[in-house]
Amino acid sequence: KWEEIAERLREEFNINPEEAREAVEKAGGNEEEARRIVKK
């Protein structure tokens, strides 16, 4: 599940997989929260 979210974030925000994974981890697997983290 987290991998899927990280993949979507990576494609959408054009970030590297590591950044995407970190955002999802910080968000506890919550996609909306992960998006907010990435946008900062």
Rank of each mutant, 00 (worst) to 15 (best):
E18N: 10
R8Q: 05
E18M: 10
K1Y: 12
R36E: 10
K40N: 14
E12K: 04
R36G: 06
K39M: 15
E33T: 09
K40P: 07
W2Q: 04
A34I: 01
A34V: 02
E12Y: 08
E22N: 13
P17K: 14
A20P: 00
R10S: 10
I5S: 02
K1Q: 13
A27Y: 00
G29R: 02
P17D: 07
E11L: 14
A6D: 01
E25Y: 15
E32I: 09
R36M: 11
V38D: 00
W2T: 06
E22H: 12
R36I: 10
A34L: 02
N30L: 07
R21W: 14
K26S: 10
A6V: 13
E19Y: 09
E3Y: 11
E3G: 11
K39Y: 11
E32D: 10
A34D: 00
I5K: 02
W2A: 06
A20S: 07
A27T: 06
E12H: 05
E31P: 06
V38K: 01
R10C: 08
A23Y: 06
N14Q: 10
E7Y: 07
K26V: 08
W2I: 06
K26Q: 09
A23S: 04
N14D: 07
I37D: 03
E18D: 12
E7H: 13
K39F: 11
A6E: 09
R21A: 10
E22I: 14
A34T: 01
I5V: 09
A20T: 02
E32M: 09
R21V: 08
E11P: 03
R35L: 05
A23Q: 02
E32A: 11
K39E: 13
N14M: 10
E11S: 14
G29W: 04
V24Q: 01
V24A: 04
N30Q: 07
W2V: 05
W2L: 07
E19R: 07
N16A: 11
A6P: 01
E12M: 08
K26R: 12
K40F: 15
A34K: 00
E22K: 08
L9W: 01
W2S: 05
K40C: 12
E18V: 10
R10A: 12
I15A: 04
F13K: 02
G28F: 15
K39R: 14
A23R: 01
R21P: 02
A20Y: 02
G29L: 03
I15L: 11
R36F: 05
G28Q: 13
N14Y: 06
E31L: 14
E25N: 09
I5M: 11
E12P: 00
R10N: 05
E7A: 13
A6Q: 07
E12F: 07
I37M: 12
E25R: 14
E7L: 15
E12R: 04
R36W: 05
E19W: 10
V38R: 02
N14H: 09
G28S: 10
F13W: 04
P17F: 15
A23T: 04
A20Q: 01
A27L: 01
E25A: 15
N16S: 15
E19A: 13
K40Q: 14
I37F: 08
A34R: 00
I37W: 07
I15Q: 03
E32H: 09
E11F: 15
E3I: 10
K26E: 09
G28P: 00
I5N: 01
V24P: 00
R21D: 06
K40M: 15
I5A: 04
L9E: 00
N14L: 08
K39P: 03
R21K: 11
L9I: 10
K1M: 12
G28W: 11
V38Y: 04
E3A: 12
N14V: 05
E4L: 14
A20C: 04
R8D: 02
K40W: 08
R8G: 03
E4M: 12
E22Q: 14
E4K: 11
A6N: 02
K40Y: 14
R10K: 07
G28T: 06
A20N: 02
E4P: 05
R36A: 09
A27W: 01
K1T: 15
E11Q: 15
K1P: 11
R8E: 02
R36T: 09
W2E: 05
A27P: 00
E4W: 14
